[in-house]
Amino acid sequence: MLFPIIPPPHVAPMSSVPILMRHVLYALVPATLAYVWYFGVGIVINMLIASAAALAGEAVMLRFRGRDVKAGLADGTAIVTAVLLAFAIPPLAPWWLPALGSASAIVLAKHLYGGLGANLFNPAMVGYAILLISFPLEMTRWLPPDAAELGYQQLGPWQQLVYSLTGSLPPGLTIDALTQATPLDLIKDGLNSMRTIGELRVGPLFAGLGGHGWQWISSFTALGGLYLLYRGIIRWHIPVSLLGSLVIMASLFYFMDPSRFSSPGFHLFSGATMMGAFFIATDPVSAATTDRGRLIFGAGIGVLTYAIRTWGGYPDGLAFAVLLMNSTVPLLDRYTRPRIYGRT
């Protein structure tokens, strides 16, 4: 009787890349539901368009690079990139915005750097940065959250889809009448025109910690993040150091001058903070890999996010903070290697 020679270990692997990606998508379900609740189905439309573009880009690039196209599409990584990008695009957006963003994320940020596992920068954030810089107008026209409650006319699913594909709105409505700035935008602009936080934080949009709707979206995003932690898909170092450093920075300045600086709670529960802490900065490929490296990486993102939000040109700085810290990863990994057992 002859048996196959396969080297040890003989125990079957406990996980796989598609399983990881599937759990990331599961973890994004609460945040997606919250988005739909407050903004309508726009995000789902964007997710579908972005995914289609990502898969197309992935297929073309895999073919060019002579890789197994079917296996590459099946790993789920392109879809995760597309879905994460969709969270950063205004819910009411023309179709080419998510399509262009996710195609450039996959083609430029992922495959030109060597494909899965080799990209230095977070693809979703590269896609977002390209869109934000190229199309600042389209990228900052957010719907007000839960428009009905605020007295706005909310578009139905069909109307959102029609706008996405054709750019036409129901008669009598213009895009400028429908959309407005996000709370982070308003604070930034207001402070620039020398008003105080106290004056700015009035009206239903600023209810609660992170602004109406936004705080719940942030909370549901964090819930998904806790699920990833619980499943062991991400580890605590990056979220804790990122959120921790952001809170420390925000507290420091807030207690110095609450009229000029937003509260730590606002920083935590508004904008992309939670998405960044649990889903973006924890992207394994573009994050540091050692424990100490991850603590520094997360803390760096927190500090930079705060700095860009407060003193920079953009209302939210998370994407740029992530990209900047991505570039430090090779160095971080090199200088934070743990001491090997039995060596000094």
Partner: peptide
């Protein structure tokens, strides 16, 4: 099946 994704 897949390249290293640096998950650590």
């Amino acid at each position: 099946e897949w390249p290293c994704i640096r998950c650590g």
